[in-house]
Amino acid sequence: MSVDERAYSRFANEIAKNALGDLLSSTNAPVQYQSAMKVLGRCLGDVLNQVLPARTKCLVASTAEDADYLSSGVLESLQSKHEALAAIFWNNHYSISSGSVAPIVHKYLQPGYEDADSLIVVKSVISGSCVVRTNILALIEKLKVGKIYIVSPVMHIKSEEALKSEFPDEIVSKFEFIYFAKDSRKDDSGEVIPGIGGQIYQLLGIGKQPAQTGYMPTLVRRLAAI
């Protein structure tokens, strides 16, 4: 599937489309890749600002690898109009015979998160349902949110239905998906094509999954004053 064939959503303006292209052209340049991902975060935050009720208290949940770029961009945009707190998860994502699992080995929850009105789950690319499902389940019983926004630059064409199938109708009715592009192909390792250009850890210059290396995002250091 070429970039020309991917399906763009109604939210994908020229800035977002250009940033998606920048991801694919900077797969060997981590600093440029980080910058493009931050731009996409701000763009997604701008879309959220258009759909969220005024002065919403938001909880922005992401993986540790997405915290400093995509998630930080979303937070920066949201905080211009709303109160936005962060929840960061270190997921150890791996395959098993029946699919994949992503247990949480560490987490950071910004104080006051329980009072959020809306949950915003951010991920750089949504290939299936595993990581997003795990992180929603880790939060949903402690929150009384009216909406759950699933937010990503790129989703696989089957991932929305896969995620919905993991939850009861009561929860699914709260879902709203906000993305810029949907792709229909995956490679042999399960990476979406063209997606975001490969595995996020290498592309950002992190190397491996943060759950396996002890990587600490700058966002968490700042919020927790570590």
Score class of each variant (00 low, 15 high):
E170Q: 15
Y149A: 08
F167L: 15
M1Q: 11
Q34Y: 05
R221M: 14
E161L: 06
V151P: 00
S25M: 12
A86G: 07
L203I: 06
S173P: 03
V220C: 05
I126E: 00
I136D: 08
E176R: 02
S127R: 03
K17E: 14
I120T: 09
E65I: 06
C58I: 06
S2A: 10
L139D: 00
G214E: 06
P153H: 07
V125H: 00
S35I: 08
S159D: 06
P153M: 12
G21S: 11
G41P: 12
A7C: 03
S173E: 12
T218Y: 13
E141G: 15
E161Y: 05
P217T: 01
L119D: 03
L75G: 06
Y8Q: 02
L219K: 05
V60L: 06
M155D: 02
A12S: 05
K144A: 13
M1I: 11
A61P: 00
Y94M: 10
A29T: 13
K174M: 12
E141N: 15
A36M: 06
P111Y: 08
F180H: 04
Y149T: 04
R55F: 08
C58Q: 02
R42T: 12
D66S: 04
I126R: 00
V31P: 01
G190A: 10
L119P: 05
I157Y: 11
V192S: 08
P210W: 01
F89Q: 06
A67K: 00
S97M: 07
A162S: 14
V51P: 14
I96C: 14
K123R: 12
V3C: 02
N28P: 00
S72W: 00
C58E: 03
G214I: 07
A12R: 00
L223Q: 13
A61I: 04
S184W: 10
S159P: 05
V122M: 09
S184Q: 11
